[in-house]
Design a protein around this nucleic acid. Structure first.
Length: 749
RNA sequence: UGGGGUAUCGCCAAGCGGUAAGGCACUUGGUUUUGGUCCAAGCAUUCGGGGGUUCGAAUCCCUCUACCCCAUCCA
């Protein structure tokens, strides 16, 4: 039952198994031009996670090739993020800028090979010359320059003799490539800018496509994992390494889908916009999807990592529901943090029959959290409860305090409402209540049944704190930018009332405020004089769900109509073939169509039927199996011949082998080029059709799977396949499936 | 429009010719001094559509459709 591995880990395992690499080296290569967000966390979790899983190493490398946008402040944020998530990078932080000298040498080498040239077109011309996605580009006249001239120019570019934009180094690949990225990509540009690390030493800086692959190579990276939008860049990645002829081991690039979450934005540009426009208080605003933001909000590294694991790694663009993230943090905090009481919107309750005061022992943790610890709760005549824990005219199903319904004060006594005091405007300002002395929590002999227990705080022993209630930053599921900001994403409660132990004992930094949610002592603004708590996430609230109208209406959304496009008409020659196949050879339309439209296939087919007179069987194999092999190969590259296919068909037709075995034989043939008869002989693949041989096997399988037999008899006919499959498996695929099918159906009746 | 990708439940996501995993969300019911947690049950006769091959297809073949990426001297 081994848990299924993601496709990257599968590749890594295969590379290890095949001996391609002895040790796995990955890297997390951010550009230090912004704060890392939860999408980076996914990348960190993948790269460091894989290195950890396979006993390899993971490097942290600043991909700092663009001096105009990068800054050391972001480097720090990146380092913090990785550390906070609990990972250690191998042997010091690395920088692409460390490799500038070596990168320069590689570029020179490319020039010497005639594979790179200095172009002097201006920016606009370069764009024009590149062509469009549907039309080829044309090469610059400067591509004619001699190697010597290129060398000289490039060196002078490096020395800073030219203005920005005057010259540029390009690879000489193919200006007509269908892959736009391969149309003589830019390798080095001139930048007279101070680099935050390299200073003013360089006047030229490598482009991503040149610097990245080589940095990976230099570091001995084996698996260069990046996001989907770099798929087109993979060709350059390989081109650079290949044409430089770098000795193995060399890295290979693999792409996965970046993380998206609804109700949030994930691009550095949009995040920067929020910061610069003051929509949020900074990169670490608790509403930001940055790692710094989540950290300040109170998320734990464990919850983020767990989230990354839950969403998985695949190649399909997707948008994860934010509720998945919220689940992860609740799930983590539920088993970790102390429960305390805090009243956000206080309503005074005077317990008229209570005098004096007492301290009540209360555990920090509910019974289902196996942790020790507790505190004293001061209790007296005057307390505060949450305003919405009392209703004068409650709806059906309301469990809390009403004029008719008593309620328990969590950890303390049961109270009943005796009188509702209102101000001139009719607003309730106080409840006068009665308590039951014998109802004390833990020694309740009152026999009174209550529907719920609510949080409260003692009026005299209360601490006023600031509580910041955060909600999702955007009101739209797929926000564009500032116009979609949720105006209620932050509500500040200036004077929330919290029980004293939270502040005096500080048993933790994170708390569950009972019945409300999880909260975090703000690491920046919290002081003893003015404690500040951030709401991390609310508790699940099935009452609120029932009360409020469903906010996301199911939206029936009529089934999308599938439009069927036009099929390109056949050429005359194809039509002639098609007619011949259907009319003369009695092929069905689909097979005839497939064959007739593909020159290679029809050719192959004609050759095969000239050997064996079985047009339909041959057609089936050619149109299905041979077509697969011919997808990314030329007919000349095939290891097998039409004649061999004919031989295979003969064996099917005379019953020597079943079509299932035929597939197996075909695969072997495609790989080794041996004749079908040889393969059948060597592997003993002759089919077993004798019921006397098959029946005992069926009996055995039936005996071994009584559950499935019962299910089958109860009407789950799909299970027929299961039994047939089992029989085929035990016979190594040799049992005649038709016979097996009949026998199994018979026996299970 | 050329090229490169991707389509499995409301949202993620396994699956690689033989019984459609799992998580989130949702819906019931039970436990509960948190309307939390926990527990039990229910959630895809069907895998973007249509054909074909096969005893058997989400998986193989053909074809159509939809969406994403590429024409920064960004990464």
């Amino acid at each position: 039952m081994g848990k299924s591995k993601d496709f990257l880990r599968r590749i890594v395992e295969e590379d290890l198994r095949s001996g391609k690499y002895r040790e796995i080296v990955t890297r997390f290569p951010p550009e230090p031009n912004g704060f890392p967000h939860i999408g980076h966390a996914k990348s960190i979790s993948i790269n460091f996670g894989i290195a950890k899983d396979y006993d390899g190493r993971c490097h942290l490398r600043m991909d700092d090739t663009n001096p105009t946008t990068e800054d050391t402040r972001y480097v720090e944020a990146l380092k913090d993020a990785v550390k906070w998530l609990g990972f250690e990078w191998d042997n010091g932080i690395r920088h692409t800028s460390d490799y500038f000298p070596r990168l320069y040498e590689y570029a020179v080498e490319l020039i010497k090979m005639g594979k790179a040239y200095v172009d002097s077109l201006n920016e606009e011309e370069i764009r024009e010359y590149r062509g469009t996605v549907t039309s080829a580009g044309k090469r610059s006249k400067y591509a004619q320059r001699s190697i010597e001239e290129n060398l000289d120019l490039f060196e002078r570019m490096k020395k800073g003799e030219f203005e920005e934009g005057e010259h540029i180094l390009r690879a000489r690949i193919d200006m007509a490539s269908p892959n736009m990225k391969m149309r003589d990509p830019l390798l080095y540009r001139i930048r007279h800018t101070h680099h935050y690390r390299a200073g003013n030493e360089w006047a030229i800086y490598p482009m991503y496509d040149f610097g990245h692959c080589l940095s990976d190579y230099i570091e001995g990276v084996t698996h260069s994992i990046c996001t989907l939008e770099f798929e087109n860049n993979r060709d350059i990645y390989n081109w650079v390494i290949d044409t430089l002829g770098l000795p193995p081991p060399r890295p290979y690039q693999h792409e996965f889908a970046r993380l998206n979450i609804n109700y949030t934005v994930m691009s550095k540009r949009k995040l920067l916009e929020l910061v610069e426009n003051g929509v949020v208080s900074g990169w670490d605003d608790p509403r930001m999807p940055t790692i710094a933001g989540y950290k300040r909000r109170g998320y734990t590294p464990e919850s983020i990592l767990n989230f990354c694991e839950q969403v998985g790694i695949a190649k399909a663009n997707s948008v994860v529901d934010v509720s998945q993230l919220e689940f992860c943090i609740r799930d983590d905090l539920n088993k970790k943090v102390p429960r305390v009481m805090c009243v956000l919107d206080p309503l005074k309750v005077t317990i008229e029959n209570y005098d004096g005061s007492e301290e009540i022992d209360a555990s920090y943790y509910p019974d289902d959290v196996p942790k020790e610890g507790g505190r004293k709760l001061p209790f007296s005549k005057e307390i505060y409860i949450e305003r919405d824990d009392f209703m004068e005219n409650p709806p059906k199903g309301y469990y809390r305090l009403t004029p008719e319904q008593p309620v328990r004060l969590k950890h303390a006594y049961i109270i009943s409402c005796r009188e509702v005091v209102k101000d001139a405007g009719g607003k309730i300002i106080e409840i006068k209540a009665e308590y039951y002395p014998e109802s004390k929590s833990g020694s309740d002999t009152s026999g009174i049944k209550v529907k719920s227990a609510i949080q409260w705080v003692d009026a005299k022993a209360v601490g006023a704190v600031e509580v910041r209630l955060y909600d999702r930053l955007f009101k739209n599921e797929a926000p564009e930018g500032i116009e979609d900001i949720n105006p209620d994403a932050l509500k500040v409660v200036k004077n929330a009332l919290v029980e004293p132990a939270v502040i005096t004992e500080r048993p933790d930094e994170r708390f569950q405020f009972e019945r409300q949610g999880y909260f975090y002592a703000d690491p920046v603004d919290y002081t003893d004089e003015k404690p500040v708590f951030n709401k991390i996430v609310g508790l699940k609230d099935s009452w609120a769900k029932k009360t409020k109208a469903p906010e996301r209406t199911p939206k029936p959304q009529a089934k999308k109509v599938q439009v069927d496009g036009e099929v390109a008409p056949m050429s005359e020659a194809e039509q002639v073939l098609f007619d011949k196949y259907t009319l003369e050879l009695k092929l069905n339309n689909e097979i005839a169509n497939t064959l007739a439209r593909d020159g290679q296939l029809s050719h192959f087919y004609e050759e095969a039927i000239s050997v064996v007179n079985s047009p339909v069987s041959v057609a089936n194999i050619v149109a299905n199996e041979v077509a697969r092999e011919l997808k990314d190969k030329q007919a000349a590259e095939l290891k097998f011949s039409a004649k061999q296919i004919a031989g295979l068909v003969e064996m099917i037709d005379d019953g020597t082998i079943s079509s299932k075995i035929a597939k197996q034989v075909f695969e072997e043939m495609a790989k080794s080029g041996e004749s079908p008869a040889q393969i059948v002989e060597a592997k003993g693949l002759v089919q077993i059709s004798d019921p006397a041989k098959i029946e005992p096997i069926i009996d055995e399988i039936i005996a071994k799977n009584p559950d499935n037999v019962a299910k089958f008899r109860a009407g789950n006919t799909k299970l027929l396949g299961f039994f047939v499959g089992q029989v085929l498996k035990t016979t190594g695929g040799k049992a005649n499936p038709k016979v097996v099918n009949e026998l199994v159906a018979e026996k299970l009746k």
